[in-house]
Write a protein that binds this DNA or RNA. Structure first.
Lengths: 113, 113
DNA sequence: TATTATGTATAAGAATCTTATGTATATTTG
DNA sequence: CAAATATACATAAGATTCTTATACATAATA
């Protein structure tokens, strides 16, 4: 997703949050939305995105619905009920994660006199 | 490190930050320190920690110094100069990462009336 | 007409981690 | 005293997640 390894493991949470927020989205739309929100800092690659969407669907967390717009295929994804419940958990985990990382980082640096 | 995949990719940054803060630490000490700081939420496994330390050393970011305490071996790690410079970058990346994740998550959820 | 944008997909390989196992000494508990 | 736990390091097999490259197809732009 980026040169920084930190984003590893966060893609599923990002997808689910965006779907919770927007109701339904298609893959390409997700990449563009993320790019805008992060001001170009985070670029989700197709090689990461599509397998992730397929897996979430296989796990029953997403439903898919195919549409044809301007003669081009779009696969709209939305959260299932199970997916909505799981999204709450994932966002809670993300909050804990961020809090823990800030605890680790904000611990006062060594003072040098 | 935990059931949450979110921590994936953050171990190197955690190690380097703790070493910046504490001067020198040995592996087991790092696992205990992290456990305390995160109030038991984050447990670094040896299978993740030791390969990570070895790799950071191989990359020239850490120096190692062996001591024997109570007849038991300890390998103290500390940041090299290069490691200190790199730590600044990693912490900056972590800040960007957290900021971006918060932007993605704090985006107003769908309002239901 | 060629490139860029839109749109989805997969396969090979890299990176990071989990889980399990191994070795060894010191301390605590039953 | 014996067994379990704590301290301390290490690695190997496999899982998961991602990058990079490639593929196909249509629409819009240069």
């Amino acid at each position: 997703m980026k040169n920084s390894q930190l984003y590893k493991g966060s893609l599923n949470t990002i997808i689910m949050k965006l779907l919770e927020e927007n109701g339904k989205m298609y893959g390409y739309e997700i990449t563009q939305k993320v790019k805008v929100i992060t001001q170009g800092e985070l670029n989700i690659t197709e090689g990461a995105l599509y397998p992730a969407l397929h897996k979430l669907e296989a796990e029953g967390l997403l439903d898919v619905e195919i549409e044809k717009v301007d003669n081009r295929m779009r696969k709209y994804y939305k959260l299932t009920e199970s997916g909505q419940r799981e999204t709450v958990n994932r966002l809670s985990e993300l909050e804990d994660f961020i809090r823990n990382m800030q605890s680790l980082v904000n611990a006062s640096p060594k003072l040098e006199f």
